[in-house]
């Protein structure tokens, strides 16, 4: 049976910039978004901002989710935002999760990240937020 959803699925890129080798959190989020009916392009570990932005463009995603534990977020996330702008793709919303101090989270929001989740955030909240901020198209 060909399942024809009335609305096309949201496509979301989940990537893990930085050098730390743990992607459990990113995988748990990927699975939760899948279970919510989204198509999750999982790019994996140690992605550079350049790789993330190129993947987002090729995959034509409606949303980018970044996960980080290494503490390098203030170096890597602004770079992602700059590259998105440079590639004329800053209409793709970005959210992030991981160990990010509150003051950094505020600065990242000012840079244009749509949401920043701390370690204890429930999956329900992440899914609902993701759905809310995903780019809608005609």
């Amino acid at each position: 049976m060909e399942k024809r959803a009335s609305e096309p699925p949201i496509r979301v890129l989940i990537a893990k910039p930085g050098l730390d080798g743990h992607d459990r959190g990113a995988k748990v989020v990927a699975r939760a978004l899948r279970d919510a009916g989204m198509e999750v392009i999982y790019a994996g570990l140690r992605q550079t901002p350049e790789e993330i932005v190129e993947a987002a463009i090729e995959e034509d995603v409606d949303l980018i989710g970044l996960s980080i534990l290494s503490g390098a977020h203030m170096a890597l996330f602004p770079r992602v935002m700059t590259l998105l702008k440079k590639r004329k793709a800053s209409n793709i919303p970005v959210f992030a999760g991981g160990i990010i101090p509150d003051e950094d989270a505020a600065r990242l929001r000012r840079l244009g990240l749509k949401a920043v989740f701390g370690p204890g955030t429930s999956l329900e909240r992440i899914v609902a937020t993701a759905r809310g901020i995903a780019r809608r198209r005609a």
Binding site: L33, R34, A36, G37, E39, V40, Y42, G44
Partner: peptide
């Protein structure tokens, strides 16, 4: 694609 949720994890890029 999951026949139940319509979602999927596309992991080949890894």
């Amino acid at each position: 694609t999951s026949p139940f949720t319509g979602g999927s994890v596309l992991g080949d890029r890894v």
